[in-house]
Nucleic acid binder design. Structure first.
Length: 406
DNA sequence: AAGTGGATCAACCGCCATAAG
DNA sequence: ACTTATGGCGGTTGATCCACT
């Protein structure tokens, strides 16, 4: 004889919760805690099953839930952890304080997945889509683009390798567990892969995080302060000196995983003959139709006179269909990528644009998102020190969670 | 004003590992 | 040892909103 049923399956309400139901649930949990979800509905006077109550509480009513727009940093964390963990939403949510796995999952499916697709990256594998290469028209474009894609591929190799090592380690531990005696502790569920570690050891994914972290402790140059920190920025970057992730399988020459390198996001640009110039730093330049710049964001962006064919789906167009209104950070990112892929090249032999902008202007309300420097370049400005702290925090969280189950 | 389609997200469904009887 | 409920998780659905025609 097993357990008794948690609740009657008939006569229970389904569908959206009413404010009265919410109040009952909140009042009960605040006074008594949820205890057994099975017993809660009847005690709280709710015609719901325990599972429905649990979901409503954990995904919506819990007081420590943060709602609203995801910050750029949260987005980066989701993308990076998704590359590392896949659709393990609860594990990803564990690294994003006050966000629920359901919310992250929804955000991924409705925003981030589409954005990566727009950038030519397969959101499932985090690999560049094969047709990205095929669509390149010029040989030089292909060559440099493929070099960038190669970084992505190597990144992915490192990730896959880490996962493979995790699986191997898991199997090894399972065998070890079988050999060990019945004195072993009851299995504790591990947040990453639902495995049961027997002896303390960090999951291999932490190798990547640690190596990543160490890359931050060794800035490549003195310009590192105004750089964007994102593996996708690597793809956007023209920096030929980008290093590739370490893989013991395929890239034995490298000893450090230098990811992600800080890079400057190039500015999309268009000249009168639709040729896209780059400066000596391999930054795309954007000549303005009107170089009179003030601090009004709308006005600034409307000076970016972009050809319609270069607009991407997510862009907000104004009425004359010849303007791209870059209000959102994902629009900025998408614009950069769209220009890079559509304008034929990474040829930096074209002279620097003479366009200058006299003052630094914050283009987005989001802190550290993007600034325009004195040369008209957009700098996605994520502070190096903040990122070091950020990844230290992630490592700390992961390590703490590991130590709790060990 | 009505219809349509896309976006969003709360909530449900179904599966799995584990706990409990 | 076996059965079955529970809790947790990821996948999916459908109601709602909103922009556009």
């Amino acid at each position: 004889m097993g357990r008794s049923p948690c609740c009657e399956k008939v006569g229970l309400k389904k569908g959206p919760w009413t404010p009265e139901e919410d109040q009952k649930l909140i009042a009960y949990i605040e006074e008594f805690g949820h205890g057994s979800w099975r017993a809660l509905p009847s005690k709280a006077g709710l015609q719901r099953c325990g599972k429905s109550c649990r979901l409503r509480w954990t995904n919506y009513l819990r007081p420590d839930i943060k709602r609203g727009k995801f910050s750029l940093q949260e987005e980066q964390t989701i993308i990076q952890l998704h590359a590392l963990l896949g659709n393990r939403w609860s594990a990803i949510a564990a690294q994003l304080p006050r966000r629920t796995d359901n919310e992250i999952k929804n955000y991924w499916n409705t925003h981030l997945k589409k954005r990566l697709t727009r950038m030519g990256i397969d959101p499932t594998t985090h690999k560049p889509k094969t047709d990205t290469l095929g669509s390149s028209s010029s040989a030089s474009h292909y060559s440099k683009d493929s070099a960038n894609l190669s970084h992505m591929a190597q990144w992915e190799s490192a990730r896959l390798e880490a996962e493979a090592r995790l699986v191997r380690e898991t199997n090894k531990l399972k065998v070890q567990k079988q050999l060990e005696s019945s004195t072993a502790q009851p299995p504790a569920r591990l947040f990453l892969n639902k495995i049961t570690p027997i002896q303390p050891s960090l999951p291999p994914c932490l190798d990547i995080l640690k190596a990543w972290q160490s890359s931050w402790s060794k800035p490549k140059d003195e310009n590192s302060n105004n750089k964007m920190h994102s593996m996708y920025a690597m793809m956007l970057s023209n920096d030929e000196n980008l290093e590739s992730p370490t893989s013991t399988l395929n890239f034995p020459g490298t000893t450090l995983l230098p990811l992600p390198l800080p890079v400057t996001v190039p500015v999309p640009t268009m000249t009168t003959n639709n040729v896209v110039p780059f400066n000596q730093n391999n930054n795309l330049l954007l000549p303005l139709t009107d170089t009179t710049i003030n601090n009004d964001e709308e006005e600034i962006w409307k000076n970016f006179n972009l050809p319609k064919q270069n607009m991407m789906e997510g862009g907000d167009n104004d009425d004359n269909n010849n303007m791209l209104n870059l209000q959102q950070d994902d629009d900025i990112m998408a614009a950069v990528e769209a220009f890079r892929s559509s304008c034929g090249g990474f040829d930096n032999t074209i002279p620097i644009s003479s366009t200058t902008i006299s003052t630094n202007v914050v283009l987005e309300g989001e802190e550290n998102l993007a600034m325009m420097n004195g040369e008209g370049n957009i700098i996605c400005n994520v502070n190096l020190e903040e990122n070091k702290h950020y990844w230290n925090s992630i490592l700390g969280l992961v390590s703490d969670e590991m130590s709790m189950v060990l």
